[in-house]
């Protein structure tokens, strides 16, 4: 049974609201990027029109330039299509409450959107998946929400050469171990204290997951997630 919070809102409601906010942020960032692609495509098309109408005497030069611009339009359209595909996969993760999914794949999807939405920052996103990692039967949207909650602060605070990495390996007793490592300079310490993350705690509970960290490890910050898989003993 859900318990009340000091604000009279159930923990379930708080989690749902936090998940909607998470999806909203990803969708807003993606559509902003998509809008940029369209704005660039429109300018390229306008430039082709301008060049064709110009009184430039060297027709060969105009044709070559238009050819270059046409190539740029195709490149932009391809980028927009890849982004649309990633966003589509991401939003469909929330279609079902339970499904069979690979933690590595779900992390990759989220990081691809991070990368697309934050492409002007040169943060590196890495995903490594070991052989023989069992699938998880749970909500992939909830898993992505947990990863997002643990990493989103770093998207703003990490320097441009920083790395956010996820390594997925088989854990003990049929668990899946997800090691989240953030490396690089942060311009402010991300706030990850557990008390302010009621939705995170409930999401972990729903996943049956154990979270250890985040804690400093050498030059990095590491968090370990152990999530029950199909093969849990």
């Amino acid at each position: 049974m859900a318990t009340g919070t000091p604000h009279g809102r159930s923990e379930e409601d708080a989690l749902r609201q936090a998940q909607v906010a998470f999806i909203g942020r990803i969708v807003a960032a993606s559509t902003h990027k998509f809008h940029n692609h369209l704005a660039v495509i429109k300018e390229y098309s306008g430039l082709i029109g301008d060049l064709l109408r110009s009184d430039q005497p060297d027709i060969r030069k105009v044709i070559d330039r238009c050819g270059d611009i046409s190539g740029s339009i195709i490149e932009r359209a391809d980028q927009a299509a890849a982004m649309e595909e990633a966003l589509n996969r991401f939003v469909h993760r929330g279609d079902v409450a339970l499904s069979l999914f690979g933690a590595g794949k779900a992390a990759e999807e989220l990081f691809l959107l991070y990368h697309i939405c934050a492409s002007r920052r040169r943060i590196n996103f890495e995903t490594q998946v070991a052989e023989g990692v069992p699938d998880i039967v749970n909500s992939p949207a909830l898993f992505q929400f947990v990863l997002y909650t643990l990493t989103s602060e770093y998207l703003e605070s990490l320097d441009e050469e920083g790395t956010i990495a996820v390594a997925v390996t088989p854990g003990r007793d049929g668990m899946v171990r997800v090691a989240l490592t953030v490396t690089g300079e942060v311009d402010r310490e991300p706030e990850l204290d557990a008390e302010s993350h009621g939705p995170l705690l409930l999401a972990l509970e729903k996943l049956g997951a154990r979270l250890s960290g985040p804690r400093p490890r050498g030059q990095a910050v590491e968090a370990l997630l152990d999530i029950p898989s199909l093969q849990e003993e």
Binding site: N36, A39, V40, E43, Y44, G46, L47, D50, R76
Partner: peptide, 16 residues
Amino acid sequence: DDELDFAETLAERLRL
């Protein structure tokens, strides 16, 4: 504008 493709293309159109 940090979207340089947009800015450079718009600039070329304005220069024309």
